[in-house]
Nucleic acid binder design. Sequence first.
DNA 1: GTGGTCTAGACCACT
DNA 2: GTGGTCTAGACCACA
Lengths: 128, 128, 128, 128
Amino acid sequence: MFQLDLKSRKSIYEQVVDNIKELVIAGVLNSEDKLPSVRELSKALTVNPNTVQKAYRELEYQGFIYTVSGLGTFVTSPIHSVMDGKKAHELQDNIRRDIKELLYMGMTRAQINELLQELFEERGEGND
Amino acid sequence: MFQLDLKSRKSIYEQVVDNIKELVIAGVLNSEDKLPSVRELSKALTVNPNTVQKAYRELEYQGFIYTVSGLGTFVTSPIHSVMDGKKAHELQDNIRRDIKELLYMGMTRAQINELLQELFEERGEGND
Amino acid sequence: MFQLDLKSRKSIYEQVVDNIKELVIAGVLNSEDKLPSVRELSKALTVNPNTVQKAYRELEYQGFIYTVSGLGTFVTSPIHSVMDGKKAHELQDNIRRDIKELLYMGMTRAQINELLQELFEERGEGND
Amino acid sequence: MFQLDLKSRKSIYEQVVDNIKELVIAGVLNSEDKLPSVRELSKALTVNPNTVQKAYRELEYQGFIYTVSGLGTFVTSPIHSVMDGKKAHELQDNIRRDIKELLYMGMTRAQINELLQELFEERGEGND
DNA sequence: GTGGTCTAGACCACT
DNA sequence: GTGGTCTAGACCACA
């Protein structure tokens, strides 16, 4: 499904969260898809089940997945991941900070715009 | 100088790092400016000197400041904060991830571009 | 594992760094080996855990070990300790300085070459 | 005479020591040459006189210079800098450690030998 | 005065 | 159990 990088400073559960989030956002995992069980995934990643458990809880809290007791864990449809004002604000703040740092490091506006255009093209959506 | 949020999930020293980094990037602290001494800042923030020192050491590793034992701590000139490839790559990766998440949440390209324009205008530089 | 010299001018954490670095370089500690936990080593050396942790953090910055919070600390494989140009340059500079000093003190080229041959033989590798 | 690098982690007095040592070893300063006075040098380097004082004391201890009260400070003739067994041993140990680290980082024997040949040629002496 | 190191001991997050 | 953070307070080296 994905790989962990133990050398990273990120905690393991955080990496699990980020990876699954990316799979959902990229459309590899779609609305109502079933996620592997905690036991399965923990075995596949050779990590402690508690770690996966914690990651699932966090993803549920962030609105990306939901759990039906006895049935399993499923991907939320994007429409349900309400445009949470607080979260959106945090994300924008992060972007703001990171871009400022890149500018400080000497990256030009042009280079940053280029980066963004690539992003838009990757998604290939026309909503602007 | 700035305020700490003790309720934040971020550790104190990390908040100190981020705050000072912002001051440097925003140009409030300029090249060769002297930072408050470890003791001064720890008193001002009512935290332990060790905590401030840890933050300063981290900032030094990141290339934002330098330390002369016995004299004090000073802001590095941006030209010295070499365009560290690894760091730049990490920043771009963060931006990539965050923007994708915003798009997933329903934000439009137009809104994102607007966000960026504001950023560029804030800095008011002509380097593109 | 090794002994500290409390009378040394070197700080304790620095001695820990140097000793572990030598163990890694000499191949006593190999890639992916687990280091003693911070608490274990601090107990063995009868120093404060913070001191050991500081040493471990420094070794991590230098690329010799990596840390997985909650799991432990492990030796990096040499291939990951990227040929850091800055560090290599510093080392060469140190060698340059030291050899010049030996020459100044009257040591002959032959004696220095002999010293180097011993070094190469110790490692017994054929890469030249 | 020489420049200090405040950004260096080395203390200032240590840099003064190293720089003067290099000048002596390189033959820029010769036996019985007079060094600038503490006041002169401290003014030239814009550092505290105590710092230069401390550097001179260290150089005297290491046998590179000597002070004649009321007359000034002078370079020792190399023959006086006795082949101090302890110091020579320390130097060799440093070289040993540094070369091992270079080897560990992936530098080849050939590259190291090359480095050494350059050193010998710089001095252009025939004693081997 | 400055930063740097160290201790003793507490508390938290992650596995 | 692991590492990570923080405090209170001491002592040292450097400028």
